[in-house]
């Protein structure tokens, strides 16, 4: 490896970064090419295709015919779509703040030297590597109304069964709980990593007993972690809007439409027996637009806060 021996004064790195030479542009595009090729072919292309299908009357193998805004107008009159949108919003509101805040809380809690800290941390992190399918299946095992573990424990304690699967609000709860279980570890690991950059003295102050600790945490530590929080809110938001496996396996969108989400609805319409590609794509595209808008909003708010 070449040792960096040249003094910065000789060439201005700043200058080099500001004005790109034609050679640099060529190199840049060259380095980006594999990436852009893969993204363009395997993601952007299909996405454009999905957009086109949203304006067609296309069902499975029949030829699609352009139908203008028919799909959209059907969408706006579709009760199930609105229900799915509402459910997705509820799910997001229930998972994002709690997921991020608990991640922060646990990170602060387990940041300090503590006997067995490594074990505690590992236990909270582990769900990160557990796939969403496994998470969902374990969720089914836990919340199964008749043979599930949680109702079994309740029965052993002499309590009544809880209708996790046949009550809408409880079904939503079970889905939220499993989602949080699989996500909090990620928030926590990112926060812990971020805390390593915070001045140890500040952290120490936040860890002293008493009312002052809370003040320091809230007034100093949390603002210092703002970029991390921003990142986590953003990815959690995206993940929540895209929720699929957990719902599909644990509740199948039911009971009734209580846990039907936008993606499961799009999937059911497009891939389910109806194979209404056009309509399924419409739901998907609307979802894409919503997530995109929320992301932009977040980015803009962040930019304004940073300025």
């Amino acid at each position: 490896m070449t040792a960096p021996t040249v003094a910065p004064a000789e060439v201005s790195p700043q200058g080099a970064a500001m004005t790109g030479s034609p050679g640099q542009a060529r190199a840049a595009w060259g380095m980006l090419a594999p990436n852009l090729l893969l993204i363009g072919v395997f993601l952007a292309g299909p996405l454009a295709w999905a957009f086109a299908m949203a304006f067609q009357d296309k069902r499975s193998f029949g030829k699609g015919t352009w139908s203008g805004l028919d799909n959209l107008s059907r969408l706006f009159g579709d009760d199930v779509f609105w229900r799915a949108l509402l459910n997705t919003a509820i799910f997001t509101a229930a998972t994002v703040p709690v997921g991020v805040l608990l991640g922060l809380g646990l990170a602060l809690l387990m940041n300090k030297a503590l006997p067995g800290r490594g074990v505690f941390r590992t236990i909270v992190y582990l769900p990160i590597v557990v796939s969403s399918l496994v998470t969902s299946l374990v969720g089914l095992l836990l919340f199964d109304e008749s043979v599930g573990i949680i109702n079994g424990i309740l029965r052993d304690l002499g309590l009544a069964d809880v209708s996790w699967q046949s009550d809408g609000a409880l079904a939503m709860t079970s889905v939220v709980v499993m989602t949080l279980w699989s996500r909090i570890g990620f928030s926590m690991v990112i926060y812990i990593a971020a805390l390593q950059d915070v001045d140890p003295q500040v952290i120490e102050a936040a860890e002293v007993d008493g009312a002052r600790a809370w003040q320091v945490t809230r007034r100093v530590v949390v603002p210092l972690l703002r970029p991390t929080t921003f990142f986590l809110v953003l990815v959690n938001l995206i993940w929540s809007f895209q929720v699929f496996d957990v719902v599909y396996v644990m509740t199948n969108g039911g009971p009734g439409y209580s846990t039907t989400m936008l993606v499961t609805y799009a999937y059911d319409e497009g891939f389910g027996p109806a194979r209404n590609f056009g309509y399924g794509a419409t739901v998907g595209v609307v979802l894409f637009v919503i997530i995109g808008a929320l992301t932009l909003l977040q980015l803009r708010r962040n930019a304004r806060a940073e300025a």
Binding site: A44, I238, Q242, F244, V263, G284, T295
Partner: peptide, 9 residues
């Protein structure tokens, strides 16, 4: 592309 749900495409 980060916000594209895979099931949609």
């Amino acid at each position: 592309t980060l916000v594209v749900p895979v099931q949609v495409v």
